[in-house]
Computed example of a mutant assay.
Amino acid sequence: MSSTTRFPGMNQPVRGILLICFAVMLFSSHDAVSKYLAGFYPIVMVVWARYVVHTLLMLAVFVPRSGLLVIRTKRPGLQAARALCLIGCSLLFTAGLHYLPLAEATAVNFLAPLLVTALSVPLLKEQVSRGQWAAVICGFVGVLIIIRPGGALFTPAVLFPLGSAFCFGFYQLITRRLSETDSPTTSNFLTGLLNSLLMSAALPFFWQTPQLSHALLMIALGACGMGGHLLMTQAFRHAAPAMLAPFSYLQIVFAGLIGMLFFGHTPDSGAMLGILVICLSGLAAAWRHRR
């Protein structure tokens, strides 16, 4: 069965590209708001706000349409593991943003697609070509260029986005498995719900009453996260993932622009070179996988 038969809108790649561009712009905005709020509130509270708003919005959008079908899963254990991977990714990446510039932290986190390539061999028993292995190695070289010894980013804080990339890599592998049995709506809703419950249990130990402007930003945080995921889901209905993969790296560009405009940080030449190496490595891996 062809992709256009499975997804009627797959013959509209331009629409898919526009949707993925808007999605990554929302993700960059989400990260910028997280970085700002992490300067005033505990990271647990920032992540809690993101998931609670996300879950409430999904309740409002999908439950009236699908009812209890939205929470029915054939693999609850994998759904729980997926949620834990994503909450680990959120906590580690937000912690990293507290110490690191937005563009550099985002670039390090984009090791995740390369880690998926490497981890798919032992976990999914997939075959990986020499070219894909070369792309994985080059991606790690790009990270070393960004955090080069003697540079400003050569601190333990860089372990946060590295850990986030590993969590996100496992998250993507589990998502691939769940796609065989559960719908994306069910997976996203259950992940948001489980993580909202988990973070709510920890919230009393970290609670600080937010200012009104900060409370509005917390609502915007969840809205950006959910909006980005919805747009990305729709993008894949109009174009193949291999076609859209290069445009996801625009998130690093958006992160750099937002970092300059709102945080006054411009990556130095070494960081720019490392970011370029990571982007090219990810694109090369996607191209080899498409072939």
Rank of each mutant, 00 (worst) to 15 (best):
A107S: 09
S269N: 12
I258N: 00
I147Y: 04
K35H: 04
Q211T: 09
A134L: 14
A223F: 08
L84G: 01
L111V: 03
L78W: 01
V121G: 04
L244K: 09
V44F: 04
L193C: 01
Q172D: 06
L230I: 14
L69F: 04
Q12R: 15
L115R: 06
Y51D: 02
F110S: 11
L257I: 15
P64H: 11
V24P: 08
L114Y: 06
A23Q: 06
A134W: 02
G150R: 07
C138S: 15
H98I: 00
A152S: 12
F262R: 06
S129G: 11
A95S: 15
G88A: 03
S129L: 05
P64D: 13
L203G: 01
V24W: 06
M232V: 07
F263W: 11
Q132Y: 01
A152I: 07
A242E: 11
A49H: 07
L19P: 00
F154E: 09
T73C: 07
A38Y: 04
V121L: 10
F22M: 14
A240N: 12
L56A: 14
Q208S: 13
N11M: 04
T117Q: 01
L119D: 06
C85Y: 02
G139P: 00
T266H: 10
A255L: 07
V121Y: 07
L178E: 08
A284W: 10
T4G: 04
G192I: 13
C21R: 01
W287Y: 15
I71L: 13
F62H: 10
F189D: 08
Q132V: 11
V158I: 13
L115T: 05
